[in-house]
């Protein structure tokens, strides 16, 4: 395990140095990433200035949802990007090289690329989260802060799991990836707002099938002390970051199944 982390860090450092070989292009990508996500939040702000609130939620509260989900997504975009580009490796045959190394395939794929430019999205999420907390003028305890951090990490794992699923699909088909984008990019859009504003079936899907609600909704219910219309008790909110971990582990099982399939078809 420790050895695995050490290897992953070596991959990360190589990936970073590769990207910094072209500093101008790297800077432009970061700025672009920051600008795109920044404009996204501006549109939300514009909507609020028109309508005042979203159901029972104020803008600073929604800012917390927004900030957390974007930080979580930025983590997985940076760290699990290798899974996102796997279909290219499979098509070109470079995935064979990964099978020829005496290490876990998932670890090696994760190491294919670490996208530092995602600090753009991460920073923007952090700024929005911070702004939300200040505007709410609430004092949060250390435990609550810990819950927020854990929820963001759990969310990172959850989105990474989705990237793993997407990569696994590429063992069967190179073209069916858009389906997964619905749940990754679509998931980010969805979880920017409190999940209680959506219709029942939609809410259930993002609670029980892909547990997006655990990234920010459940933890924030506890922190903001809102009663959940679904009737989920607050103590469960404190466990919700674990859902991301469980989801990620399950996705890795699916991944291993996909690798076995690759062994027998070679494509």
């Amino acid at each position: 395990m420790r050895d695995g982390i050490r290897l992953y860090l070596r991959y990360v450092s190589m990936s970073l140095r590769s990207q910094l070989q072209y500093p101008a292009s790297f800077l432009m990508l970061v700025v672009g990433n920051l600008a795109i996500t920044g404009i996204e939040f501006l549109t939300i702000w514009a909507l609020f200035s028109r309508f005042g609130s979203l159901g029972e939620w104020s803008l600073p509260e929604v800012a917390l949802f927004y900030g957390m989900v974007h930080m979580a997504f930025a983590i997985s975009e940076a760290a699990a990007r290798g899974f996102d580009i796997l279909h290219r490796q499979v098509r070109s045959g470079d995935f064979d090289r990964i099978l020829l190394r005496p290490r876990s395939t998932a670890l090696q794929v994760m190491g294919l690329e670490f996208q530092l430019l995602r600090v753009g999205r991460f920073a923007q999420g952090l700024v929005v989260l911070r702004w939300g907390l200040t505007s709410l003028k609430m004092s949060i305890t250390f435990a609550e802060l810990l819950l927020i951090v854990a929820a963001i990490i759990g969310g990172g794992l959850l989105f990474s799991g989705l990237f793993v699923l997407q990569a696994t699909l590429s063992f069967w088909s190179v073209d069916s990836l858009e389906v997964v984008n619905l749940t990754t990019y679509g998931g980010v859009e969805t979880a920017q707002a409190p999940i209680s504003i959506y219709r029942g079936y939609f809410r259930s899907f993002f609670t029980w099938v892909i547990p997006l609600a655990t990234i920010n909704y459940f933890p924030l219910m506890a922190i903001l002390d809102h009663a959940d219309p679904l009737g989920i008790p607050h103590w469960l909110s404190w466990l919700s970051p674990l859902a991301g971990l469980v989801f990620f582990v399950l996705c890795l099982q699916v991944w291993n199944f996909g690798v076995r399939h690759y062994h027998s078809t070679g494509s």
Binding site: D3, L7, R17, S18, Q21, G93, D94, R101
Partner: peptide
């Protein structure tokens, strides 16, 4: 026809990565 070395980095970096991969 295929490379196992990191395209943008000095050769020695790829060797050191392999050192870690093979422990």
């Amino acid at each position: 026809q295929r490379s196992q070395l990191w395209w943008d980095l000095p050769v020695i970096d790829s060797f050191e990565l392999l050192r870690d991969i093979y422990r």
